[in-house]
Design a protein around this nucleic acid. Structure first.
Length: 565
RNA sequence: GCACCCGUAGUCUAAUGGAUAGAACGGAGGCCUCCGACGCCUUUAAUGCAGGUUCGAUUCCUGUCGGGUGCACCA
């Protein structure tokens, strides 16, 4: 319908195409101002006329074409030209679109592959509140791209290689043993890692030894590798528990260690392309031209480093998956690292360097302090999720004690609260972790959305029959409250596209929130089952579609929706 | 020192360069004989500062102040 208007506008205004009008037309800030607005400031320049005059003229012309354009009326307000749809026609087209495949969302990504690198926790460390962000944001983006038809490869690029494991081996040999690690698992690994770091502060020798052990690992020393593999297994068990709670899976767990034997080839390639220079014993790519510190490829002891492993990884991925885009979801503090890696790919002559995207998120702090394993300023992901589930259980016992599958519902609601809390604001914002905020179930929260869904489902259950869309009289939804709900529903596709374009799941989270709020108002103001038959059918149809979009949108974020709660 | 990110009600935050800056939490008050009150309604309060570009700036540019982060052998 908007296209039709744009077509017409371009026919009466010389210098502007229909496409330009589509981008020019905006949604008015207030409901009373109509459904579509054309600001005429820009036209004033081209036409050398007063913008208010132009708006008045266009308004008049639109009004003369009301029938053809499916509009109720057009009104002039200052330099704006406000357009009101014929509600019945508009509602009809919205409802039809939402009944289409994929809720009317165009699958523009079909045939294209996106690699997504997210979560990627470090082996031998606990999965904490910081890892939760990359995991949740990454998962939401994965679902969003998948919805748009992209073929998405979910890669958990495990932090399972590097000097830190040398440290761990040294620490293990000095202060631990097989029995202790078997008994206490990751807790013990963490204990000796912390001890190593504090001891190393006064003793340089420890660091040297750790580097030596890492060199041994890179040379496939059997003892070093055996210990490393054992530690890795212990960690994976813990990570999987968290992923299971979140309901998140990956397509590949190929971590950093996988690329250790691919760095020599990278070094050769760089040498051939004359990009490698020696600096203080290390081999680097000089990036001074680009106002960046050099990109380290091998350390002075010859071992690889995360820059080189990341470069090797992206070359491998391009070869294996032929991605149209490779997305990295990590903390903002790694911005420089990815700038260097992407630039390295570019100077190596790969034109697909522009397909690499860093999607950063803000830092998580605790009580205003940086998270730190060493001094215990840390909260574990599993504890947060479990506490939230407990909190949901308490709420259920209080509000709906007869509910069946309490445990399953408590998990959906508790986990949903944590996920939604992480996705509702722009990812770039820093978060100071607060139990109170995470465990809040009122207002703009996951449980609010889930509750709304359960409410809609409850109405449909009471009705008992399948909603018949052919019976719908769109005039019955022309009141302001219902109409507003229809308008929001029709914005689903745009929200999903927008989120994908900006790598920003919060766009979907906010959309879902708006939708839930609009439905709650509708539910409050418009009796559904008690309305007279024609109106009832129309309202049921609206309830059905709302419920579908809520469900689908929640799925995109990683939230599950219980039928009852 | 250099670079990057962020400054909006008491708090946490939204706003493709557009109309009266929109929510939530908190505070004050109201709505369950009525489809689920984890809901709805009313009320309270904000763009760090100074310039610039523009018909129009929360948004873009410059400077400044405040907070966060990063600057090669950790990831």
């Amino acid at each position: 319908m908007k296209e039709k208007i744009s077509q017409y506008l371009s026919s009466i205004v010389e210098d502007l195409s229909a496409e330009e009008f589509v981008t020019l037309l905006e949604t008015p800030p207030e409901e009373e101002m109509g459904d579509l607005a054309l600001p005429c400031f820009g036209l004033a320049k081209k036409m050398h006329k007063n913008p208010q005059l132009i708006a008045a003229e266009i308004t008049e012309k639109l009004n003369a074409q009301k029938e053809v354009l499916d509009i109720e009326k057009s009104e002039n307000a200052g330099a704006y030209c406000n357009i009101y749809w014929k509600r019945e026609a508009y509602i009809k087209s919205c409802l039809e679109k939402l009944q289409m495949e994929n809720l009317g969302v165009e699958q523009s990504g079909i045939g294209k592959t996106i690699c997504m690198d997210y979560s990627s926790p470090n082996i031998a460390k606990n999965f904490h509140v910081g890892h939760l962000r990359t995991t949740i944001i990454g998962n939401a983006l994965y679902k969003i791209y998948q919805k748009l038809g992209f073929d998405v490869v979910r890669i958990n690029h495990l932090g399972d290689w590097g000097t830190q494991f040398g440290k761990l081996i040294v620490a293990y040999k000095l202060w631990s043993n097989e029995e202790l690690v078997k008994k206490k698992g990751i807790e013990e690994l963490l204990r000796i890692y912390v001890k190593f770091n504090s001891e190393a502060e006064h003793n340089e020798r420890f660091i040297t030894e750790a580097r030596e052990w890492f060199v041994k690992m890179e040379q496939n020393d059997s003892e070093a590798i055996a210990i490393w593999e054992w530690f890795k297994q212990i960690s994976m068990v813990e990570f999987e528990r968290v992923y299971a709670l979140l309901g998140i899976t990956f397509d590949s767990y190929v971590g950093e260690s996988f690329y250790r034997d691919k760095v020599p080839a990278l070094v050769e390639e760089l040498k051939k392309k004359n990009l490698l220079s020696k600096s203080q014993g290390a081999q680097v790519i000089d990036l001074e031209k680009y106002q960046m510190p050099p990109c380290l490829i091998t350390k002075s002891d010859g071992s690889s480093i995360y820059h080189s492993r990341d470069i090797a990884a992206v070359l491998y991925r391009k070869e294996k998956y032929g991605f149209a885009k490779c997305i990295y979801v990590t903390g903002l503090e790694q911005s420089l690292h990815f700038k260097q890696v992407f630039k390295a790919i570019e100077v190596m002559g790969y034109d697909w360097a522009e397909m690499l995207v860093h999607v950063p998120y803000g830092l998580v702090s605790l009580a205003g302090e940086k998270l730190s394993t060493r001094n215990g300023n840390i909260i574990y992901a599993e504890d947060i999720l479990k506490e939230s589930i407990r909190r949901a259980e308490t709420a259920i016992l209080e509000k709906n004690p007869n509910l069946e599958n309490k445990e399953a519902v408590a998990r959906m609601v508790g986990v949903g609260a944590v996920i939604f809390h992480d996705l509702y604001n722009q990812r770039i914002k820093n978060i100071d972790f607060s139990w109170k905020d995470v465990l809040n179930f009122d207002g703009t929260t996951g449980p609010y959305v889930q509750y709304t869904y359960a409410r809609a489902k409850s109405v449909l259950r009471k009705y008992g029959k399948t909603v018949d869309f052919d019976q719908v009289d769109c005039n019955a939804l022309a009141d302001n409250v219902s109409y507003n709900l229809v308008k929001i529903l029709s914005g689903y596709e745009e929200a999903v596209k927008n989120a994908a374009e900006k790598y920003e799941p919060s766009v979907v989270a906010r959309y879902i929130m708006n939708l839930a709020a609009a439905f709650n108002k509708f539910y409050h103001d418009c009796a559904i089952l008690k309305a007279e038959e024609t109106v009832k059918q129309a309202r049921l149809a609206l309830t059905e579609l709302t419920q579908r979009v809520l469900y689908d949108g929640c799925r995109l974020l990683g939230l599950e929706c219980p039928e009852e709660m």
